[in-house]
Amino acid sequence: PQPPHSTTLPSHFMKGAIIQLATGELKRVEDLQTQDFVRSAEVSGGLKIDSSTVVDIQESQWPGFVTLHFVVGEQQSKVCLDVPPEHPFFVYGQGWSSCSPSQTAQLFALPCHRLQVGDVCISISLQSIS
């Protein structure tokens, strides 16, 4: 397997970063709510929001990373992701969450909950054409 391609996260997770929703509305990253993602997917076309449930969190084979195991969408597909522990995910009804909220706070000043098995994260996929 290939190692994760980057050890630095983009600055859009930095507290105060300006995010443009698909409606055109601008919000700060820390102010985003579940509905902002849902609404954006609805109006963007071609993208759909999936519910991705965390089923396992393990140490990665790559130093400094964790491996997250998700089951994704209605089909309950299994997907693994190697990410740095400070990587934030948006959990339904809870908001930003990471495996290491303290590191996320240190690097991005973004307040986070601790990501746990059973959390349901927002992810996106391509909308299938019927």
């Binding site: 983009p10 970063a17 597909s77 997907v79």
Partner: peptide, 25 residues
């Protein structure tokens, strides 16, 4: 003179992972 600061604006979909299920063979 104060130069206007450019502010980066990021698209919403850059914040959430793209988790495409692997296609069955």
């Amino acid at each position: 003179n104060v130069e206007p600061r450019s502010v980066a604006v990021f698209p919403w979909h850059s914040l959430v992972p793209f988790l495409a299920p692997s296609q069955p063979d």
